[in-house]
Simulated assay, not measured.
Amino acid sequence: MSDTPPDRLSVNPKSPHYDAEVLARGVGVRFKGVEKTNVEEYCVSEGWVRLSVGSTVDRKGDPMTIKLQGPVEPYFQTEA
């Protein structure tokens, strides 16, 4: 496994960008230089994060999210 997180990653198992092995290793995200703990999905190349908003869910049971634009810096929290 590489030392850099993937360009795009989602924590939702229904998403095509979900990767259980990478998530098990622990991925942290800095957005605009601030550590974010409520990231549902991110894309480095397009420069956006999707953050969960509180504990509300949509009609399918997925968390409500908001998409924000800006610099995204993912990193591994633990070594491989």
Rank of each mutant, 00 (worst) to 15 (best):
V27M: 02
A80Y: 04
K32A: 11
L9H: 01
D58N: 13
F31L: 11
E41P: 01
L23A: 01
R59M: 09
D62C: 05
I66D: 06
S55V: 08
D58F: 02
M1V: 05
K32T: 07
N12L: 05
R8P: 01
V22G: 02
W48M: 04
S52K: 12
K36I: 12
P13E: 11
G47D: 09
S45E: 12
V53K: 09
T78W: 11
A24C: 04
S55Y: 03
N12A: 04
D19Y: 07
A80W: 08
V49A: 01
G54F: 07
I66N: 07
V44S: 02
P74T: 08
L68Q: 08
P13K: 05
V27S: 02
P16W: 06
Y75W: 06
G70Y: 14
R59A: 11
A20V: 08
S2L: 11
P5D: 03
W48F: 14
S52C: 06
R8D: 02
L68G: 02
P16N: 09
H17L: 03
V27L: 07
D62F: 11
G26N: 13
S2R: 12
V22S: 03
G26R: 06
K67P: 01
V27F: 07
L23W: 09
D62G: 02
P13S: 10
E35C: 04
E41Q: 14
V22D: 01
V22Y: 02
H17F: 13
Y75I: 06
W48V: 04
S15P: 02
V34K: 15
V72R: 00
M1L: 09
S10R: 03
P16D: 11
D7V: 11
V39P: 00
N38I: 10
E40H: 13
P5K: 03
P6T: 06
V22H: 01
E21T: 14
S52T: 12
A24T: 08
S10M: 03
L68N: 02
S15I: 02
S55E: 12
L9C: 00
M1S: 10
K32N: 14
S10C: 15
Y75K: 05
G28R: 00
D62H: 06
F31W: 10
T4N: 10
K67F: 03
T4K: 13
V49G: 00
I66H: 03
V44W: 04
L51E: 05
L23I: 11
Q77S: 13
T65N: 05
P71R: 13
C43S: 15
P74M: 07
S2I: 06
R8G: 04
R50W: 01
R30F: 12
K67Q: 15
E73R: 11
Y75T: 04
V34N: 13
T56H: 09
I66G: 04
S15A: 07
E35F: 14
G33L: 05
P16K: 15
V39Y: 01
S10N: 08
A24F: 04
A80G: 10
R8M: 14
D7G: 02
L51W: 06
S55M: 04
R59E: 12
K32E: 15
L68R: 08
G61N: 05
Y42E: 07
A24Q: 14
D62T: 02
P16H: 11
M64S: 06
D58H: 01
I66V: 14
S10Q: 07
P5G: 08
F31M: 09
P6I: 07
